[in-house]
Design a binder for these strands. Sequence first.
RNA 1: GCGCGGGUAGUCUAGUGGUAGGACAACGCCCUUCCGAGGCGUUAGCCCGGGUUCAAAUCCCGGCCCGUGCACCA
Length: 565
Amino acid sequence: MSEIMEMLVRRGFIWQSFEIYGGMAGFIDYAPLGNGLRRKVETLWREFFVINERSVEIDTPTVGIEEVFIASGHADGFTDVAIECSGCGRVFRADHYVKEKLNLEVDPTVEAVKNVIQEFNLKCECGGDFRNPEHFNLMFVTKIGPGRGKKGYLRPETAQGIFIAFKRLSDYFRNKLPFGVAQIGRAYRNEISPRQGVIRLREFNQAELEFFCHPGEKRHPEFYKYADDVITLVDKFDKEHRITLKEAVEKGIIAHELLAYFVGKTRRFLLAAGIKDEKLRFRQHKDDERAHYAVDCWDAEVLLSYGWIEVVGIADRSDYDLSRHTQFSREDLSIFVPFEEPVKVRKRKVVPDLSKLGPAFKDKAKKIAEELERLEDVGNDITVVVDDEEITVSPEYYEIKEVEEEIHGERLIPHVIEPSFGLDRITYAILEHAFDTDTVDGEERKVLRLKRKLAPVQVAVLPLLSRDVFVDEAEKIASELREHGIYTELDVTGSIGRRYRRYDEIGTPFCITIDHQTFEDETVTIRDRDTTTQVRVGKTELVEVLVELLNSEKSITEFGEIFRS
RNA sequence: GCGCGGGUAGUCUAGUGGUAGGACAACGCCCUUCCGAGGCGUUAGCCCGGGUUCAAAUCCCGGCCCGUGCACCA
């Protein structure tokens, strides 16, 4: 186990789930400190992507019904059959492999594939035999309700819950584009072989924003905020660029301004969370790498001990999801977008005469009329198709009128830009980038240099000695800090130096020490984790000073005289 | 999923068939005027299941977990 993982487990950031039963790969427990940190990362994310955006946050079920994932395309793997070689261990998608080797279309079912393999004695490229074919899908299946129940899946991403609620959401925003909808929550993928600690989990935390926009207006009014930020980009040809976002858009490296806006915002968020700029890059997905729904995709990658790891995916999903759900649910998920000026259009319209259609066509009359109204610029005898029946309607049943219409807008399916964050990976990356060791008097000191606002324990109150008077005073101060919402720990055990080390290791930015002088002049010391310097501050101003320190990056030396430097 | 290497207190580690040892950490008491001090004491361990054997942490088989290479990662 790496030095940092050893610390994270020992100090209570993360633990292996189901440990007393031997554990299960792909699942972790967030221990007290790790949970605190992740919660704070979520809060920071909300500040960026909900509060300071035209966005709202919702929460939808983690279980989804089968229809959702058929529409979304995630269930395709259902009908995919995988075959694995018993010799070399390679896994192929069976129908693709059969097509390639035998030039044969095979039904993508286990039975059909099995028959083909036997009939043609199909071998692996390495000459090995294939095992029995199996269904291949990374979604967890579940059953809703008793008995045979209804088939459901644990969601593989939070996004679908947003797309499904689109009509309600659009209405909530009074049908005005653009708008964003965020969701923070768990998602599940039944990974074949989860590895690398928290990097690939079977149950993980996502923070996703679906930003719905006009297909022709992929811009953002606040792009100027990030336009001049210099970032590292790796394009789909593996070419590295170190340029501003503005240039990246102008040169067409990033497809459009809105995508670039979210690249910039994502970068600022990650930096605010403590990711190091020099260990951060944005990489464009290659053409064969993109998900089935994406037209362009940029990953934020962070350099960790595991290599460059994807922590955020920023995808232009176009109208893929809303179109698919329109098709499968038969609900209209388009939005009416008014033109700036109404457009006048002259056209010939077919106006059905229901008083004649009715007696002649009886119960079909209504449908025929609807079909007729849909047509324009027609000849004399019109043929329409109603209930698979061709019906010819002669001119006596309708009138053709030349009309001038004002068109006020158009219905269109919004496109969606999706920044999707892996919170577990980000939380881990923050820890790795914050982890530092330095040497003091030949002793190694481990320090977690977390951003102050993310530290799970913000302040530790430490009586210099374990005598009652010191401890009583420390308890009073700790209570006061807690009443003001500061996450405070009180620690009485061990020498003062040992206690400083403890809190350095878990990233606590400030230690308050009660010493002899406290009883002489009502002051305490504040010790800064990163510099280990101390200043003396009056007890009465302590809360105010700490609140300001915790919400800024100011130096403690601005708030008091240096003590024992 | 396949191959290789591992799994002994909270952590790290010694232990090749015969009573499981240490370090650090933690906890208690004493001492102590600021950066892993000291003294005394305490807690705490052989991943799980089966087999071989009089006897298994140790040998064998299977599983689980960790690491790693291949494959997979919509």
